[in-house]
């Protein structure tokens, strides 16, 4: 029992570290691949975490990812931080719902990608008092589908190689 608890803790630390590193690499070195759509590499870690460790751990990984990656880039509590937090909060919520509904991993990944974009647009609209920014949503939704499928494929490949540690529901 103690061994399992240690393993969970180590996995949680590793996933958090991976999410932070992927988030920083993506924001600095990769950038948007199409219009404003990013791949969402850190979403792979969120998907893997909820399947392997569980919901609570996924929330911890996502929260730590936003806080530490913006802190390391010197942008904590800036507009970037709140926009990032908005995207992650909504995508985490959707991820939990999809996990409860037993949706396929690929569909969950696409919905997470979509909700991440929607969350960010909502925060930008509130932050800059610009409801017209919603006009960008069709582009983001369209771009999120292939990106979500891509992250879903990678998450699927990871999950076939790691045994889940969470209790079956």
């Amino acid at each position: 029992m103690g061994n399992l608890k240690t393993r969970r803790f180590v996995y949680l630390a590793l996933f958090t570290a991976m999410a932070i590193v992927l988030s920083i690499i993506e924001s600095i070195y990769i950038g948007p691949v199409f219009f404003m759509v990013r791949v969402g590499l850190a979403n792979i870690v969120a998907l893997v975490t909820i399947k392997i460790l569980g919901t609570k751990e996924m929330i911890i990984v996502n929260a730590m990812r936003v806080v530490i990656s913006t802190l390391m880039r010197g942008m904590i509590f800036s507009s970037t931080f709140w926009i990032s937090l908005g995207g992650v909060a909504l995508s985490s919520l959707v991820l939990i719902i999809m996990d409860r509904m037993k949706s396929s991993l690929m569909f969950t990944s696409v919905m997470c990608s979509i909700s991440h974009s929607v969350g960010q647009v909502i925060v930008v609209a509130l932050f800059y008092m610009q409801p017209r920014i919603a006009a960008i949503l069709p582009y983001l939704l369209l771009g999120s589908i292939p990106m979500g499928i891509l992250t879903g494929i990678v998450a699927q490949m990871v999950l076939t190689r790691i045994r889940p540690l969470k209790q079956p529901q």
Binding site: S104, F107, L142
Partner: peptide, 18 residues
């Protein structure tokens, strides 16, 4: 992916394109 999931994604894509 399940069939209804594909349909839902197709609907999102078509609405976005429109």
């Amino acid at each position: 992916m399940k069939k209804k999931e594909w349909i839902l994604l197709a609907v999102i894509a078509v609405v976005s394109l429109a």
